[in-house]
Design a protein around this nucleic acid. Sequence first.
DNA 1: TTAAATTTTAT
DNA 2: TAAAATTTA
Length: 681
Amino acid sequence: MAGGACSIVWFRRDLRVEDNPALTAGVRAGAVVAVFVWAPEEEGHYQPGRVSRWWLKHSLAHLDSSLRSLGTCLVTKRSSDSVSSLLEVVKSTGATQLFFNHLYDPISLVRDHRAKEVLTAHGVAVRSFNADLLYEPWDVNDAQGRPFTTFAAFWERCLSMPYDPEAPLLPPKRIISGDVTSCHSDQLVFEDDLEKGSNALLARAWSPGWSNADKALTTFINGPLLEYSKNRRKADSATTSFLSPHLHFGEVSVRKVFNLVRIKQVLWANEGNKAGQESVNLFLESIGLREYSRYLSFNHPYSHERPLLGHLKFFPWVVDEGYFKAWRQGRTGYPLVDAGMRELWATGWLHDRIRVVVSSFFVKVLQLPWRWGMKYFWDTLLDADLESDALGWQYISGTLPDGREFDRIDNPQFEGYKFDPHGEYVRRWLPELARLPTDWIHHPWNAPESVLQAAGIELGSNYPLPIVGIDAAKDRLQEALSEMWQLEAASRAAIENGTEEGLGDSTEATPFAFPQDTPMEENVEPARINAPATTRRYEDQMVPSMTSSLVRGVHDETSSDLRTSEEGSRAEVPRNVNVHQAPQRGTLNQGIQQTVRNNNSFLQFNLPMGVRNAEDSTDSSTSSSRRERDGGVVPVWSPPASSYSEQFIGDENDIGTSSSYLPRHPQSHQILNWRRLSQTG
DNA sequence: TTAAATTTTAT
DNA sequence: TAAAATTTA
């Protein structure tokens, strides 16, 4: 059918043939050209990490083979600009229509809007659909027609909408292929040789691809779902749904999940099965949180990089590379935290409870900027998902109206006995503690010397002492909070005086520019962990990247990382950490003021801050390891902090004071338009 | 039955 | 940590 009218179905994070409205529309319209564009640079700061790319690679292969059995194939394009690649495909295939499904992260919102404009201008009819959510964000509003700002109210509304979510669509029986003879596919490269080695293990635990996702769903619903409420609290329980990576890439549709779970719900309600009903409600709630993450991202497109509660932008985070590194390596001295971080490192997976534990420790005990932690999760999690992770970290950080209280500190020791009462999880991931009795497993620092000796543990040598004491952390948190309120009051006064008036609106340039990212730091680490009976290697473990001018420091730092079971590791244990001495606070606040005054300087701001921190901390007691081993050049991961949101520091995008940023800010008209655009599907 | 003690769980 | 839910005397 040479050059005959056909439509492009643009696949993104909807890698399935079942319940895929864009695909269905394409099939109905006639011949189809299925396209996937790989343009990671477009994602700026948040390019998929190694394990995420591994997943994508297999998911795409799976989709391609499904499409082939239906009569067409997946055209793949390597690109630095999705929209121009689509245009190319239009030209080479003579397509007259474009169909795609909605995404709600800020970058996609803008990119998809542009795609629509540009292709329409070229005479292509564009339609887009909801395939990712039960209800579109703009359809869920309170009685005044305003978006919700708390999860409970949002979810209650979702569950009582006047109409049900759309029923899932069946896969097409057959697809008529558009003419792709003059539209060549690029070979997409998702992993290098080094990464291949590390990824080899992933296939043992996971099967990407939409029909595997479907199997996982069925297995879960017919099995573990019943006990979901009972089992979901154990650190290493295998009773979660394990659907999150499938859902992230849209291999399974939430609407299908919802429908199948609902059927069970009715069944168990009729049987009077209380445990089952509770399980269903809890599981649906976790689906609801995923919905809410998209909802927040849509209504507050900066939620992945700035607190939704405005006063939190004045919180003086501790900018300390040493702490950050100890956390990443699982060497904080708190066994549950460390076990979690080692598991994440090794497998790309973490139970939800443990995610809460490690991130809460990160924010409340170490008081590191939550976006660093979020970025590390992004780089390492198999199910890394910008919207969900932003919601999670904001919740933990207390920067949401209904998040945890900000001044609450969870004690990892108690949480350890709660989520891992027998210490099995800790022993699995921290072999150095394997012989410690359960009584001490979550607080080895209290164990009698004789017990430690018998277990072969020398605190400060082969396992660290706590990097920060909980009591010290509490004091420090209080201080930081009062500093935050002072700064907030000062800023408010300044604004009332008119000193900073209008600054927030003055920066229209590069609305979605992020600081340059450089390739991820590599850890070349032979670490032994007696996890699933294998010796694992930790090559090419991703950690947050750093600003380009500091790249030279990379190998200096990483080559000495985390030799868990080697003598050589000892120097790396963060030690000499004086609990009573407050570490250096970052100079974020000054930085922010700077940025505001000299708006659009975020790139400049970024570098100096990193360098300053590195130099400042040379003498700090928290950074001895750096001085010893890293040759003075400290790789600094550039916090996304300064990228964008601070340009709008003067605005009132507080979720507390106004429910939506959008209507009051003309410079964000792309997104206003997008609201309209979104309804065309 | 009520009130106190306890356990549970946070988006 | 603190509010809510549940158990106990």
